[in-house]
Each structure stands twice: as structure tokens, then as C-alpha cells.
């Protein structure tokens, strides 16, 4: 009797976790993996993928979501964050970066909203230079200070009060790749909702 009861208990317990997985992950997987990628959604380039790694390394996802909510649910549309996101927008995303927090604004279409490379580089170097009142952390380790810039290096245009004396601040490969990735965030192509 004891054995039968234990067996039923363990079977029941395993069944609960299995059905939870099937409903929340298994069936959606079967449905969504059928969806073809949108024609106008380009694959990430190698540089963009490298930038995406920096985005993950520095934990940008803990303050920035990448999902636009539908009209009538929040104010995403009125804030010009883009059209509502669809599963097809994420087919090339691994790991996914949907996020759960908006300490900062949504970035699903930041490449459309803010296409300036210089703005992004200065913003990464010290967010408060271009966005007063921001509480985003600075990322000085994505930049180098040196006496003069090399041939292909991008120099930051900094106000005199911030600029280091006698040196210039140049973006590292990591900073330019991260910026490339941010500029690639553009899901403005039309989709069927």
C-alpha cells in the first residue's frame, strides 16, 4: 500500500511539472517555430553580434526592454517606441533580450529613434553629457585616453570641462560594435499583426 501511494505521489508530482512545461514552452515552441522570418528583417552582422555580446556583458537588459506593447496597453505608441512587436521580430535573437524592466526606455527601435553614432558614443562614455538627469551608468572602459587618435579611430567630441588635458578620448572596438548593434535595432518594417 505504502509503495503504491508513494508511486502515485511521485507520478502526480512529475505530471504537474511536465504539463506546465508542455503548456508554457512545448506547445508555443511548436507553434512559433513555424513562423518564417520577416523578409525585411536582416540578419545581424558579425560586428553587430559582437556589440550584442557587449550589451549582454554590461547587463543593459536589466534596465531596457526590447518589446513594444500594443496600442491601448501602456503608452509605447505615443512615446514613439514603434509598432507592437511580433514573434517574427525575434527569430535571430539568441539569447532573447525582451527584458522585464524599464528603468530606461525601450530599445526595440532605438536605431530609428536615435541614429547618431556620436550621440551613442558620448552617451555610453557618460550618459549625463547628452541626457541630463539620466541615471544610466557610465562605461569609461569602452574608451581609451591617448595623446592622439590613430587613423581609423573615432574621437569623442567632449566639452572642455570633461575632456582630459592633452589627451583625446577614442572609442574602442567594443564601443563601436555596441553602437553598431544599437543602430541595428530597427523593427519598423511592416508586419501582419
Amino acid at each position: 500500500m505504502m509503495f503504491v501511494r508513494s508511486f502515485v505521489f511521485f507520478l502526480g508530482v512529475l505530471a504537474t511539472v511536465f504539463f506546465g512545461w508542455a503548456a508554457l514552452v512545448g506547445i508555443p515552441d511548436a507553434m512559433i517555430s513555424e513562423i518564417p522570418p520577416p523578409e525585411d528583417l536582416p540578419r545581424y552582422t558579425d560586428v553587430q553580434l559582437f556589440g550584442r555580446k557587449i550589451y549582454i556583458r554590461e547587463g543593459c537588459l536589466y534596465c531596457h526592454s526590447q518589446q513594444v506593447r500594443p496600442e491601448g496597453f501602456g503608452s509605447d505608441d505615443d512615446r514613439f517606441w514603434g509598432r507592437p512587436s511580433v514573434p517574427g521580430d525575434y527569430v535571430y535573437d539568441k539569447p532573447h533580450l525582451l527584458g522585464t524592466m524599464r528603468t530606461g526606455p525601450d530599445l526595440m527601435n532605438i536605431g530609428v529613434r536615435q541614429p547618431s553614432v556620436d550621440w551613442h558614443l558620448i552617451h555610453l562614455y557618460n550618459p549625463r553629457l547628452v541626457s541630463p538627469g539620466s541615471i544610466m551608468p557610465p562605461y569609461p572602459w569602452l574608451f581609451n585616453e591617448k595623446p592622439s587618435a590613430g587613423p581609423n579611430e573615432r574621437v569623442l567630441t567632449l566639452p572642455d570641462s570633461i575632456a582630459p588635458k592633452g589627451n583625446v578620448v577614442v572609442a574602442t572596438e567594443e564601443a563601436t560594435a555596441l553602437t553598431e548593434y544599437l543602430l541595428s535595432l530597427n523593427r519598423s518594417y511592416p508586419v501582419r499583426q
Partner: peptide, 8 residues
């Protein structure tokens, strides 16, 4: 998993 299924 990949994409939104990975989010799920």
C-alpha cells in the same frame, strides 16, 4: 530555444 520561445 530561441527568440520569443526562449523568453517563454
Amino acid at each position: 530555444y530561441q527568440g520569443v520561445v526562449e523568453a517563454a
